[in-house]
Each structure stands twice: as structure tokens, then as C-alpha cells.
């Protein structure tokens, strides 16, 4: 626990070495009313990794997240989380949304909001001693213990984000799935949040959607590039030039990588749908 890993790659072992993948996409296509957003996606996220999901705006990153949570069902193909239908194992995923709508006049403290993560752990009655202990521990983990009694709406954007991460943590998730956790914070806070994710990565798989390549390349061990098509590769195989090329749409450059096959979306989209046995929409 005391050793600080030098690189992100060192933190996460080889995918093959570390047992089963936790998230699997098999030939997944998804469309909102005929308009195809994701096309023929096959990838598997290995356990205990810190995987970043990157891609330009409108590339289907949020759709990817919703498919992983089972909030959307694929039109074709199937999604598996822990080898099961996502909706059935959703409790094992700690999801931190990009935006939350909340009433700023609502009188709740940071600790109250963290405790809400354990609301479904008991059927009736108030929170138990263990719930409170866990919530306080989670606040320590995200380094907000001194703000536990402060009103949630008086916190800064970064602090709120960390409270929501703590809220996800108190439910003991095995995967932490964050949708643009640093969308509304400055670079210093962004750095702190990624440091925190790095720390949490010792205990769980982390999947984080981001648009900031510089931060991602420093922290992630694996990268999922989404641009209607998607693929996963290890960070060590991905040079910054390649990622930037991906953003620019310079696909020719990317195809040189043997492990990380990112196709030109325009070609890949024309490919026929793969036939999937046992198509699953749950």
C-alpha cells in the first residue's frame, strides 16, 4: 500500500494475468431512432484497470456508459458485466453521473448525501452505525472529512463531485464508473480527482469518461477510444500522437498499431452487422 507506482501501467497487471474481464461488449450496435450511434463494438475491460473512455463530442461515450449500466439495451449484440446482464448487477457498479439535478435550497449536509449511497442497504428504520462509519470512512477517502457537516449546496464543484464519488463508494462497488467527473472543475481540482481515482484503483476497477487527453494519458492504464466504433488498448501501446490522430480523424496513422485497431469510422460503419447467437436485449 505504501509503494507509489511509477507508471499507470505498472499499477494494473496484464489483462490476461488478471483473471476475467469485468465489462464485455460483443458486437454491440446501438441506435437512437435509426440513427446509429455505436457500431459493432467488441471489447472487454479487464478487472482492476483504470480505463479511460475518450472520444470527441457526440461520439457515443455517454451511450457507452448507459449500455454498461443497462439503462439502454443494445439493438444488436450483447453487453455483459461480471458475466451477467448489466441491469442485474447494477448494484455492484458505483456510478457517478456527469450532471446531477438538485435543489440548491435543499437542506442536506455532505455527510447526508454520502449516506444516501446506502439507502437501499436496509429496508426500514434509520441508518445503522455501520452505515455512518462507512460514510465517514468514504469522506476520509475523498479527503472531505472536515466538510462533513457543511451544506451540500455550499460546496464547490470539485467538492460536490468528490461527495458523489464517496456516495458511490459507500455501497462497496466493484466497478466505479464516472461520466466526465472533471467537466466543471479547474485543472488543479481535476488533477486531485484523478489522483484520488488512482488511489481507489488499488481496490476496484475504474472506468472514467473524459475529454481531457492530457490528464488521461497520465493516469489511465487502458484506453477506450470511442468514435461510433470503439476499441480498447493498453496505454503503453498508445502514444500521444496516436490519440491525437484519433481525435483529428487521422485514422491511417492509428492503423499501424497492431494491438489497438481503430478503424476509420466511415469504413467501419459500412461493415455489415455481425451475426450474434443468443442476441440479448436485457
Amino acid at each position: 500500500m505504501t509503494r507509489t507506482p511509477e507508471t499507470a501501467a505498472e499499477l494494473s497487471p496484464e489483462p490476461s494475468a488478471n483473471a476475467r474481464p469485468v465489462i464485455e461488449f460483443e458486437d454491440v450496435c446501438f441506435a437512437y431512432n435509426r440513427e446509429e450511434v455505436l457500431h459493432n463494438i467488441s471489447l472487454s475491460v479487464p478487472g482492476q484497470t483504470l480505463t479511460a473512455v475518450v472520444g470527441p463530442n457526440g461520439a457515443g461515450k455517454s451511450t457507452f456508459v448507459k449500455l454498461t449500466l443497462g439503462l439502454l439495451s443494445p439493438v444488436r449484440g450483447r453487453v455483459r458485466v461480471f458475466g451477467d446482464a448489466p441491469a442485474r448487477v447494477r448494484r455492484r457498479i458505483g456510478y457517478v453521473p456527469q450532471h446531477i439535478q438538485f435543489d440548491s435550497d435543499f437542506p442536506v449536509s455532505a455527510l447526508d448525501v454520502v449516506l444516501m449511497g446506502r439507502a437501499e442497504k436496509h429496508w426500514i428504520g434509520p441508518y445503522r452505525r455501520t452505515d455512518r462509519d462507512k460514510a465517514e470512512k468514504a469522506l476520509v477517502q475523498v479527503q472531505l472529512q472536515q466538510l462533513a457537516r457543511r451544506s451540500f449546496s455550499s460546496l464547490s464543484g470539485g467538492e460536490r463531485q468528490r461527495v458523489l464519488i464517496a456516495q458511490a463508494l459507500v455501497a462497496n462497488p466493484e466497478i466505479l464508473l464516472l461520466d466526465e467527473p472533471t467537466a466543471n472543475v479547474d485543472t488543479q481540482v481535476e488533477h486531485e480527482i484523478y489522483e484520488l481515482l488512482h488511489e481507489l484503483n488499488r481496490q476496484m476497477t475504474i472506468v472514467v469518461v473524459s475529454h481531457n487527453l492530457n490528464v488521461v494519458t497520465r493516469h489511465a492504464s487502458h484506453l477506450i477510444c470511442v468514435n461510433r466504433v470503439a476499441s480498447l488498448c493498453r496505454m503503453t501501446e498508445m502514444t500521444e500522437d496516436r490519440i491525437h490522430a484519433f481525435y483529428r480523424g487521422d485514422m491511417a496513422m492509428l492503423q499501424h498499431s497492431a494491438d489497438c485497431q481503430i478503424f476509420d469510422p466511415s469504413n467501419a460503419m459500412r461493415e455489415p452487422h455481425h451475426d450474434v447467437k443468443g442476441e440479448d436485449r436485457s
Binding site: L69, L71, Y95, I100, D112, L115, M116, G117, A119
Partner: peptide
């Protein structure tokens, strides 16, 4: 506790 959660973060509560 449940009433508090569903009043403050109904969408997230449903997800959880």
C-alpha cells in the same frame, strides 16, 4: 432516509 434520498436525488436513487 428513503424519503430524503428520493426527494433530493430521485434519478440517482433509482439507479442505485
Amino acid at each position: 432516509d428513503k424519503f430524503l434520498v428520493i426527494s433530493f436525488l430521485p434519478e440517482l436513487a433509482r439507479l442505485r
